[in-house]
Design a protein around this nucleic acid. Structure first.
Lengths: 345, 345
DNA sequence: CTGAAAGCGCTAACAT
DNA sequence: ATGTTAGCGCTTTCAG
């Protein structure tokens, strides 16, 4: 048996090297004030025993956990996985690890996730709340001393710093662009209307329509191919069938596009299409799909940066407690391709 | 100041409830052998103080970490993010958390990631090794007592259990299908030829070609639009320009398809296309892209299950030590759409 | 049913 | 330059 069943301890290393524990501790923490020779001996012992300091013991001693919690609806979702990737990079750069927990947009899971993370005493928390009005969550986050930053969605009525995208402006911009194309009957399709981001986008759409004296036409349950087909068929049947469709989330965009294709509806000639959120193939499709693009990586990046900023400041301005309620709002960009009617010059 | 700066401790709860620490410990661990009344009092104290047991202290006492490490090249990659999602579900079901570390396929980062996770004393490790022949990693993993399972890629010459896909068979199947279509000049394009999975696929392609008496034509540096364009232009210029292209990874597939479209090459009439690995838009593109589909979720799922199986068995068959060198190989599926020439009946 | 006390691995005074 | 020692918060015998 070569592999030890139990981990080697600092104490064992000390004995093996014939020194005291302090010396070993010094060595593994940079080796200040240690005789080079002693240091070498200790390092040999460490090597031999395969010693690795126990994070748990350090934590218990009051050190930071060097772990950051990330709570998101799903890792498989490209939006959140990109956020996670960006956040992870920052976390690693700060010599910490990322613990990722997913909620499937279930507030209960979310609460549990936060709980679990608190038990692990993560140094900080990045969370994309399921529900902007979740009082239970807000109260729980208010109680803890761990720095928290929300991602993509704020928690209303709380002073928790957040990094969000200007969903309202994005959808407004999209709608206005469609209007400029001359379309009058512009339908808006989406799913998950209970989400904060979607609501903001719906407001943006509705606002832009009303400002232009047009009548909004919103369908909020288009979540897949089946519902897209049903909704579209329904829409096209009527007299005032839409000249353009604005979709507020990725899956909806794709579902609508595929349905349109399947039924031989010409895009953008018969019906123009503009989607919220860019996706990998938007460029490759024929016609290519015009979209509102969010600065996804930047969201994760900014959230993590903001968190560490707070982590460090917290240590510094101990007494001050100047609640720096930062609210980062990132802008979206209209990416014009063909599906909206552009580029047919 | 309402929020405590320091976390409440079990001791504080005990004092607040007027009981001993043992009793509090019993309460938070299920409350066996505790007077209901005492229990209620303790719980009230816990509530009031917002007490949460410190995982670190528990670990130090010898408990499991309830953390599993996942080391993958990237979270943003749809393949790995789906694996991660599936793994996460299993991990959560086992009352643990997932710590995700990414390597960007850099062996150095990888080593560091494993190191970090060991310091955190994760109960188990799931890793998609950058390099199948990395001796340093193999040795390091051999040294530690923590159960490890590899994902998508094995570590050669080690007895570490792994969950992989039958890449060879998949690529072989794909090539054979193309051959059945009657294509004789079939080119194979890919990137990252140093990766185990890609190598297996290349073997599958080459094998199938040779078995059919055809001459393999492999390009191993097609990684983006630029390289795809260059490669394709080069290929088409020649006399024996390919009738079909097999792409061995997602990005290559997309790049090749877009390039083909851009240059007005008819797919599949002029050049047929078959890709390894399915992707969201493959169905929606015109023509829709035929692909080899991997059971992605299952990989993550199986890896996590395998890991916990070992974790539990390890506890049980302490003395036995029957090294159950399990090697799970998952099958791929050929998804026929239009780009290969199918469906034009 | 309950409490006192030991000790998990480590760091940080405080000696020497 | 190096060793001694007291805990960090928790679980767990072992006695009541």
């Amino acid at each position: 048996m070569k592999t030890r069943n139990k981990h080697a301890t600092l104490n064992e290393v000390a004995r093996a090297a014939g020194v005291g524990t302090t010396t070993v501790s010094r060595v593994i923490n940079g080796g200040q004030r240690v005789d080079p020779e002693t240091m070498a001996r200790v390092q040999r012992a460490i090597e031999t025993l395969g010693y690795m300091p126990s994070q748990a013991a350090r934590i218990l001693k009051g050190d930071r956990t060097r772990a950051i919690g990330l709570v998101i609806p799903s890792i498989a979702d490209p939006f959140f996985s990109s956020c996670a990737e960006a956040a992870q990079a920052i976390v690693r750069a700060n010599d910490s690890v990322l613990i990722v927990l997913t909620t499937q947009n279930d507030p209960k899971e979310e609460l549990e996730a936060v709980n679990m993370l608190m038990r692990h005493r993560v140094d900080g928390l990045i969370i994309a709340p399921c529900n902007a009005e979740d009082d239970v969550l807000a109260r729980m986050l208010g109680r803890i001393s761990t720095p928290v930053v929300t991602l993509d969605r704020p928690i209303e009525g709380s002073k928790i710093p957040s990094v969000v995208v200007d969903n309202f402006a994005g959808a407004k911009l999209a709608t206005e662009h469609l209007i400029e194309h001359g379309y009058r009957r512009i339908a808006c399709l989406t799913g998950e209307p209970h989400l904060y981001t979607i609501q903001e986008r719906m407001r943006g759409y509705t606002g832009a329509m009303q400002s232009a004296g047009l009548k909004p036409a919103l369908s909020v349950d288009v979540e897949d191919h089946v519902s897209a087909e049903k909704c579209l068929l329904n829409l096209m049947k009527k007299a005032g069938s839409p000249q353009a469709v604005l979709t507020l989330k990725n899956i909806t965009t794709v579902a609508v596009f595929e349905t349109l294709q399947k039924h031989g509806v010409k895009v953008p000639e018969t019906v123009a299409l503009l989607g919220y959120d860019d996706f990998q193939m938007a460029e490759a499709l024929r016609p290519s799909i015009s979209v509102i693009r969010q600065p996804i990586e930047e969201i994760g990046h900014a959230a993590a940066e903001l968190l560490f900023e707070r982590l460090l400041n917290q240590g510094a301005s101990k007494g001050g407690g100047s609640l720096q309620r930062r609210q980062v709002v990132l802008a979206t960009r209209l990416v014009l391709r063909n599906s909206c009617g552009c580029g047919r010059a």
